[in-house]
Design a protein around this nucleic acid. Structure first.
Length: 595
RNA sequence: GGAGGCGUGGUGUAGCUGGUUUAACACACCUGCCUGUCACGCAGGAGAUCGCGGGUUCGAAUCCCGUCGCUUCCGCCA
């Protein structure tokens, strides 16, 4: 269609173009037919410009009659002259609003059915309709703008990493099923009956192999697949900014990530991020905020009240402490809760293991009230001081095992803020959370497992604990959090075969299993692996936050629904018996429908 | 796997404590009129048996059960 000779985008016309002959192509946004005068709003991805048709005589009259046939979303070609609008007729709401186009030629390149929803309408159609007609949904200026933003952000990432000596390397999409982690998407092999590929959950192992290969600095805008249930911020396929560096320690990786994000925010949003990002140890994050991804825009913090609680006669507190637990409180500054609200919250925390919720509140006069107020006795001022509580504040108190108390108060922190629409401080509050436990106890399977992944290096000084007290070992890993959303994680990897085998042993992977599952990696490490570390950042999540979209689906061109379906193509869908046979597959679907 | 929300002309909503509607409103659509609009305006028109199935009832968009779809959260997501 190069012969169309489009000369300009609609949205870029300005007074400077006045007098020029232009050729525009785009979609009809609206036609305002005044009978003796007709306005056409022509739209392309750059925006809108107004084209004015006069009835006149001869050719002009033909053009006018043609224009009267135009309908929304017709694709048209317009040639004409850019002209200043008459005095007082400019539209300040439109970037091109000072000019208009006087046409000399009009051609319908393609008509359109009446669209199933108004592309430029005020109302946002139901999301399933948007997804079914995604190409029309994406035609909406907000959505096109988001796609453009995504392009610019990815370009900024590439430019930055290139400038720092990173090479972009592609890794396989058809790979081996990984033993731990999320459920894999499997692809059956036709050539090898009964064997399967898995789509990668991340390029983790390959990037480590690239380090062994001497690539030194690798990155990839990598598609990752995880067959788990979806959320507003979780899709079965998503994109990571994946990178790995050889001969580095934590500081190198964190600095590169900070500078990369600084570059992206500067180029895409014109925002200057404050570097470096603050860091919090995992233990401190859990103690102060009850979560490993605290939203720092919310200043509320958790306080340990165990010593004070020990002096009360309150059974629940004393029992919790006697069993080795803790008593902690969360102050809600200036927030009053009704009994009913507290009951509702108590019910909600039951699923987190919280058996009850105590509370205190301070009156204007300074007197304390609440479910445990009568147990404070002479210690009331000490409680108040510890919590820094003042009139109008409510404090929620949880007692029990440390893990449960953290989880409960961490949950309440965001839950109440949401409910009460507590004001969050504005801004981009990045945070590094470092020093996660290397291992976590899997209650169900009765064994230790990797908290991050099994290739994460333990802290050197914790190595002796690996066999004696695995839960105490901290890892050389780091999570990046933005406004309470986990953006990604990374670590310094194990590069010595002996240590890798010790970690495998700690998580109950026998040498035989290790060889079976990761033999290729262990073997590679036997041939001179450099110390290395890296990071993987969730691109979709980052973009969602940057553009202020409520869901990751809004920054992905063709996303899946909560049931992992594509409403546009109808995927997933059945395949023919012939296809199954070719793949040596037979279906075993239990007949659940009893009619 | 569990819990909640939503489903009404093409679109977005109202109606939903059962019977005063012939299911309403806005936008879109169709016809006509209109020379400066830009969410153009005016007049007229067409269009929904209320996701689907079953039940309760004299009577169901409205109540109940099931089911499907979308969605939010928990579990899950090394």
């Amino acid at each position: 269609m190069a012969g169309l000779l489009r000369t300009h985008y609609c949205g870029e016309l300005r007074p400077a173009h006045a007098g020029q002959e232009v050729a525009l192509a785009g979609w009809v946004r609206t036609v305002r037919d005044h009978g003796g005068l007709l306005f056409l709003d022509l739209r392309d991805r750059s925006g809108v410009v107004q084209v004015v048709f006069h009835p006149g005589r001869g050719e002009e009259a033909d053009l006018f009659r043609q224009a009267q046939e135009l309908r929304a979303e017709y694709v048209v070609l317009v040639r004409g002259k850019v002209s200043m609008r008459p005095p007082g007729r400019a539209n300040p709401a439109l970037p091109s609003g000072e000019v208009e186009v006087i046409p000399s030629y009009l051609e319908v390149l393609a008509p359109s059915l009446v669209p199933p929803f108004e592309v430029d309408g005020r109302a946002e159609p139901d999301e399933s309709l948007r997804l079914r007609y995604r190409y029309l949904d994406l035609r909406r200026p907000v959505m096109l703008e988001r796609l453009g933003f995504r392009h610019r952000a990815v370009k900024a990432v590439r430019d930055f990493l290139d400038s720092r000596g990173f090479w972009e390397v592609e890794t396989p999409a058809l790979t081996r099923s990984t033993p731990e982690g999320a459920r894999d998407y499997l692809v059956p092999s036709r050539v090898q009956p009964g064997h399967f590929y898995a789509l990668p959950q991340s390029p983790q192992l390959f990037k480590q192999l690239l380090m062994v290969a001497g690539v030194d600095r690798y990155f990839q805008i990598a598609r990752c697949f995880r067959d788990e249930d979806l959320r507003a911020d979780r899709q079965p396929e998503f994109t990571q900014i994946d990178l790995e560096m050889a001969f580095v320690d934590e500081e190198d990786v964190l600095t590169v990530m900070e500078e990369m994000l600084g570059h992206v925010f500067r180029t895409c949003l014109g925002v200057e991020l404050e570097l470096p990002f603050p860091r919090l140890s995992w233990d401190e994050a859990m103690d102060r905020f009850g979560t490993d991804k605290p939203d720092l825009r919310l200043p509320w913090e958790i306080r340990d009240l165990s010593d004070l609680a020990a002096r009360t006669e309150f059974r629940i507190f004393r029992d919790a402490l006697a069993e080795g637990g803790t008593v902690r409180g969360l102050r809600l500054p200036g927030i009053a809760l009704t009994r009913r609200e507290i009951d509702a919250l108590t019910a909600e925390i039951a699923s987190l293991g919280g058996r009850g919720l105590a509370w205190l509140a301070w009156e204007d006069g300074g007197q304390v009230r609440g479910s445990v107020a009568r147990f404070l006795g002479g210690d009331a001022p000490a409680w108040r001081e510890r919590l820094a509580a003042g009139p109008g504040d409510t404090v929620l108190i949880s007692a029990g095992p440390l893990q449960v108390v953290r989880r409960v108060l961490g949950f309440l922190r965001t839950r109440v803020a949401e409910e009460k629409e507590a004001v969050r401080e504005p801004g981009w509050r990045f945070l590094w959370v470092v020093g996660f436990p290397l291992l976590e106890w899997n209650e169900e399977e009765g064994r230790w497992q990797a908290e991050h992944h099994p290739f994460t290096s333990p802290l050197e000084e914790h190595l002796p604990l690996l066999e004696t007290d695995p839960g105490k070992v901290r890892a050389r890993c780091y999570d990046l959090v933005l406004n309470g959303e986990e953006l990604g994680s990374g670590s310094i990897r194990i590069h010595r075969r002996d240590l890798q085998e010790r970690v495998f042993r700690a998580i109950g992977i026998t040498p035989e299993e290790a060889r079976e599952r990761f033999g290729f990696l262990l073997e590679a490490f036997a041939y001179g692996a450099p110390p290395h570390g890296g990071f993987a950042l969730g691109l979709d999540r980052l973009l969602m936050l940057m553009v202020g979209a409520p869901s990751m689906r809004d920054v992905i061109a063709f996303p899946k629904t909560a049931r992992a379906a594509c409403l546009l193509t109808g995927a997933p869908a059945p395949v023919s018996p012939a296809q199954l046979a070719e793949l040596h597959l037979r279906l075993a679907i239990p007949s659940t429908r009893g009619h």
